[in-house]
């Protein structure tokens, strides 16, 4: 990789410790969710007051359909839409997207790279590939951890097909792609690392808040279509046992559009500190 795709290697090499820590954090966190689900049934967990959880809690169960958080798919889905999971995804995406262009411009290292026979398309392609690989690693870690938990727990396994776990993992990767595109566009146009990290966090945090508000408050319901969390529905994938292709298409399509925009912006800009 170092000789053939040096920019991809460089991006991953420079963030290797952060990525390792995030992967470990993801495994520990998802293992904890599985242990909690296996120890106390979701129905008991959310019915202490004699009532079920409010419908808006579907935002936390990773469902845009009818999967309640007070169910095994809902609880495992909550582990895949939890703010901790989101924070880890945003950290990886924000950091690597910032390093793709903006951080090199900010630090001045872009001069050394781009005076060589490196096209802007290649710069963007290798740096995007690094992001996709990082997102793949994070989501694979989460998926394999949840899959191991499902296989080891008969109660969970009865409610959640193993195919649903991998489908949720695919949706997770689609969600990451949905954020990677706009983050790369900001990086391609930006001159500061902080701009990219800030924009990535804003997209993630605002997206989650919009989805929750849309589910909780009727008049705001149409807004849910603007949030990536409306389409990223791991709870539904876990319950149905398959990938939700239309939603995945929207997530991936948004990501691809963002990358195309990044390409246009990068082609036109000056590349110097």
């Amino acid at each position: 990789m170092k000789g053939q795709w040096p920019l991809l290697w460089l991006a991953l090499y420079r963030r290797r410790r952060m990525l390792a820590a995030l992967i470990i954090g993801m495994v520990v966190f998802e293992a904890l969710i599985v242990v909690v689900a296996n120890t106390i049934s979701p129905g008991q967990l959310f019915s202490a007051g004699g009532k079920g959880p409010p419908s808006a809690y579907r935002a936390f169960s990773g469902s845009s359909g009818g999967v309640s958080i007070a169910s095994y798919p809902g609880l495992l889905g909550a582990g895949l839409t939890h703010p901790f999971w989101i924070a880890m995804q945003l950290t990886a995406i924000g950091s690597l997207a910032a390093a793709a262009v903006a951080a090199d411009v900010e630090s001045g290292t872009v001069e050394l790279v781009m005076v060589r026979p490196v096209s802007r398309t290649r710069l963007l392609a290798e740096r995007t590939a690094a992001l996709v690989l990082a997102a793949l690693a994070l989501n694979l870690a989460a998926t394999l951890t949840v899959a191991a938990g499902v296989v080891l727990s008969p109660d969970i396994h009865r409610a959640v097909p193993i195919g649903g776990v991998f489908a949720a993992g695919v949706m997770g990767l689609g969600f990451a792609l949905c954020l990677i595109g706009p983050a790369m566009a900001v990086s391609a146009a930006g001159r500061r690392r902080a701009q990219v990290i800030g924009a990535t966090i804003a997209i993630g945090a605002v997206g989650f808040a919009v989805n929750f508000i849309a589910l909780a408050w009727g008049p705001a319901a149409p807004l849910r279509f603007l949030s990536p969390f409306h389409y990223y529905a791991p709870g539904d994938a876990l319950a149905e046992g398959g990938v939700l292709w239309p939603q995945l298409g929207i997530l991936v399509g948004t990501g691809v559009l963002g990358i195309l925009l990044a390409h246009l912006l990068l082609r036109r800009r000056d590349l110097a500190p």
Binding site: K2, G3, P6, L7, L10, Y13, R14, S107, G108, T109, E111, L112, V113, R116, P117, V118, P273
Partner: peptide, 24 residues
């Protein structure tokens, strides 16, 4: 460049390797 900026975590040899790989 006038203000030479390098990737601080790379060694000198890794830096030269990287830049020659990019130079092809």
């Amino acid at each position: 460049p006038g203000e030479l900026r390098l990737y601080p975590e790379l060694s000198g040899a890794e830096t030269l390797d990287l830049l020659s790989a990019l130079q092809e």
